[in-house]
């Protein structure tokens, strides 16, 4: 059995959907439950782990988050909280969604929580027509049906188009 020091220095390679490879320290990768399970199930660290749904730009962000949280696990929570809010600041909706999808796939709960919460906070005061556009949802209501659904909770639409 390898010593723990050796293990800590181990690195593994992740490959994004667009073919870019990322060399990641094992303790950083362990922030992801998916990668943790793969390593536990005797997956050799020499292998390249393909992440076919995550592009290089998103993966770089995800790994930045993981590194900060892995290195700071013993440091102050306040510092991590301010890192988290700074991390998502000014991020557009497309990037946030990619982050949520990646965090969901790689099972990184902390990242999923903050990114999903950021999207929720952004959409909660928007009109439903705009939310429909943001989420690329096709409106399958007839005008009559949509009016009827709206009527069910008319009070919630006060001040909205």
């Amino acid at each position: 059995m390898a010593s723990s020091i050796e293990n800590n220095n181990e690195k593994l390679t992740l490959k994004s959907s667009d073919g870019e490879e990322f060399l990641v320290e094992k303790h950083v990768a362990l922030q992801s439950t998916l990668l943790q399970n793969m390593l536990d199930s005797d997956c050799s660290s020499a292998d390249v782990i393909p992440l076919p749904k995550i592009d290089a730009r998103t993966l770089a962000l995800v790994l930045g988050y993981c590194k900060k949280h892995a290195d700071a696990s013993s440091s102050k929570q306040g510092e991590l909280n301010s890192f988290d809010s700074e991390f998502l600041k000014d991020m557009d909706m497309g990037a946030l969604f990619n982050l949520v999808l990646a965090a969901n796939f790689m099972e990184i709960k902390g990242l999923l929580d903050i990114a999903a919460q950021k999207i929720a906070d952004t959409i909660k005061d928007k009109p439903h027509q705009e939310v429909r556009e943001i989420f690329h949802v096709e409106n399958d209501y007839t005008p009559e049906e949509e009016a009827a659904v709206r009527e069910e909770n008319r009070w919630a639409f006060e001040g909205f188009p």
Binding site: V131, F135, N139, D140, Y141, E146, R150, N153
Partner: peptide, 12 residues
């Protein structure tokens, strides 16, 4: 309150 409005996004 936002969820009640978002029922109007789509049937799904």
């Amino acid at each position: 309150k936002s969820i009640l409005r978002f029922k109007s996004v789509s049937k799904h």
